[in-house]
């Protein structure tokens, strides 16, 4: 009972933002930022405990390479020193490099080579062939749109134009599919605020909005 009421009040606090920026939303925002930060710090401490404290201190693996990571991690804090701040760049450089490496790993095979593969253009089933042709044309034209050093004129102009149109189809599809995934949250929350005890909280909220409107008019 209390639990459900708290949940519905919290939902309404956040949704009050739809009406206008107000004190309830602000409280919700501050709570969320504080709680989320606490959760990430706790998870972070758990990670450090499991990956550093347990192997090194408990299991006595003093020569583990993790120590280098610890040293690099501590280097980050040189940021707060006036003379050694530049050391803090090293760990961040290593970290960014690894991120880029991970991203690149997927880029070449998944994003380029695999995508080049295309079905036959003439098949027994004529529609499959036509579909494959359309696939080829849309792919090539939208790729051609992104040519940077060739001006979009002459033979390239219609190609780039077609490229824009095929991309628009792609974006339209995405936009259409979007709604379904996006309204899911609201739909799954609504039972909390239209069934008791949440309903009572909603009624209070509606009254507050009406009062606020009246005050503003005066």
């Amino acid at each position: 009972m209390i639990d459900a009421l708290v949940t519905s009040i919290v939902i309404l606090m956040a949704w009050s933002f739809l009406y206008r920026e107000n004190i309830f939303y602000r409280i919700g925002e501050a709570l969320l930022v504080g709680l989320a930060l606490a959760i990430s710090v706790k998870v972070g401490l758990d990670v450090l405990f499991n990956r550093i404290y347990i192997p090194i201190v408990v299991k006595q693996q003093w020569l583990s390479p993790t120590l280098i990571a610890v040293a690099l991690g501590l280097m980050m804090y040189t940021r707060f020193s006036k003379s050694l701040w530049w050391v803090s760049r090293w760990p961040i450089a290593l970290l960014s490099g690894a991120g880029l490496g991970v991203a690149m790993k997927g880029a070449v095979m998944a994003q380029i080579v695999r995508q080049l593969d295309i079905g036959s253009l003439f098949t027994k089933d004529i529609f499959t062939g036509i579909n494959n042709l359309i696939l080829l044309v849309t792919a090539i034209t939208s790729l051609a749109y992104f040519l940077y050093t060739f001006e979009h004129k002459g033979a390239l102009a219609p190609v780039a134009k077609l490229g824009i149109y095929s991309m628009m189809i792609c974006f339209g599809t995405t936009l259409g599919l979007f709604l379904m995934s996006n309204i899911g949250f609201a739909i799954s929350l609504i039972p909390n605020v239209v069934r008791p005890p949440g309903l009572y909280a909603s009624i209070v909220a509606i009254i507050l909005i009406i009062v606020d409107n009246l005050i503003k008019k005066e």
Partner: peptide, 20 residues
């Protein structure tokens, strides 16, 4: 980068022809 793209476009067409 552009020349790389053109190369891939050609490869794309070749792949389609080859798979036909």
């Amino acid at each position: 980068q552009d020349l790389y793209k053109i190369l891939l476009i050609i490869l794309f067409i070749l792949a389609a022809v080859a798979s036909t």
